[in-house]
Nucleic acid binder design. Structure first.
Lengths: 197, 197
DNA sequence: TGCTGAACTCTACGGCTGATGAAATAAGAG
DNA sequence: CTCTTATTTCATCAGCCGTAGAGTTCAGCA
């Protein structure tokens, strides 16, 4: 009768890190920063809360380790720009709506939005992330002087759609068909990018 | 030597209720629902925390008592519609940007946004508020079939502007002059309301 | 004047929070 | 085989949270 060890390292491959990250991603995404606790993440990951401190230092570091865009802009952007400048609005709108319709994409995007809304530090993180990863490259692809401003206008409509359709869930926008929504905002994005301001 | 009373009712007019509401408005607006505590509201109001329970029952009731739009839609909307349907977009854009530029208007609007982003219950409250108070009347003034959908699109651009310009503070949108921003989004709102979708 | 109820303070409870430090155990390098 | 290091558990800390209850004082009315 060997007693079951009650502490100490476990035999075999450890999937603890991945479990923590997965649980953190889900809970931060669904409930925002403040309402998810280190303890609840640990519980969902089937792990002692102290392990989170051990691996990531503190809650905020875990958050920043987990915050990421639901797509890779450097891979996506060229595709959206491929059909010429007059199609960017439509492609952008369809891509944005498409991301928000996939469960994982929506979860991650709303995680960013929720966190930015409640935590100033997270807002800074999100600002730098989307500025360098999305708006910067997007602006760089536009052959006009005020490209950064135009790109940030695009950002405002996209994040506004996320808020109105998924967070606040205002009707009938929330239950409108994705293709219709994409078609509705496509001209907006197109004008922000290439039209007269 | 009459000892100073340490508890009990104060003589004279009591401004406690107003102080509590003012402090609550400010803190909910600036920090969101979760990050403002009953205790900190009480401290700012110079009041015992139990008085908040006494007057409002609990934190959530205080929040709903304090949540309100930074303007009165029933008074404002007619003015925005007065110049005919082709001017609504411009007037709406200028009004929205104007509200967000005033400290009080911005504070209250961001309070709604922040709360909706973090608290599902607050999201419900905000949804009903803007649906019945703003989008409903706005849609009623439009002589088209899909007016509610059009109104909710307008809402998405406005809330998106609030998020991008004031919460995330993405540049150069955040420091762009208000008139320029209003002029940029006016055609968007106009198309959402009366243009082709 | 006396009574009732509203305004107000104090104390405190139970619970959850993020974080720490020590001890236990196994993996892996030498 | 041994030693170091990484992983894991446990116990616990100090702090804040929302809320309840009891007690104190005053205002307004009969």
């Amino acid at each position: 009768m060997t007693a079951r060890p009650r502490s100490g390292r476990r035999p075999g491959d450890s999937k603890t890190r991945e479990a923590i990250l997965a649980a953190a991603r889900q809970q931060f995404g669904e409930q925002g920063y403040d309402r998810t606790s280190v303890r609840s993440i640990a519980a969902q990951a089937g792990v002692d809360p102290a392990l989170i401190t051990h691996f990531h230092g503190n809650k905020q570091a875990l958050f920043t380790a987990v915050v990421e865009l639901p797509f890779e802009p450097r891979k996506v952007l060229p595709r959206l720009l491929a059909d010429g400048p007059e199609q960017v609005g439509r492609h952008l709108a369809e891509f944005a709506v498409g991301v928000m319709e996939s469960p994982d994409g929506r979860r991650r995007l709303l995680g960013l939005v929720r966190a930015a809304a409640s935590e100033p530090e997270a807002a800074r993180l999100v600002r730098e992330l989307i500025t360098t990863e999305i708006l910067g490259p997007l602006a760089a692809a536009l052959p006009v002087e005020d490209a950064p401003y135009r790109a940030s206008l695009v950002g405002s409509q996209v994040v506004g759609l996320a808020m109105a359709r998924y967070v606040v869930a205002v009707e009938p926008l929330a239950s409108q068909r994705p293709e219709v929504v994409a078609a509705s905002i496509a001209p907006t994005l197109q004008r922000y990018l290439t039209g007269p301001l």
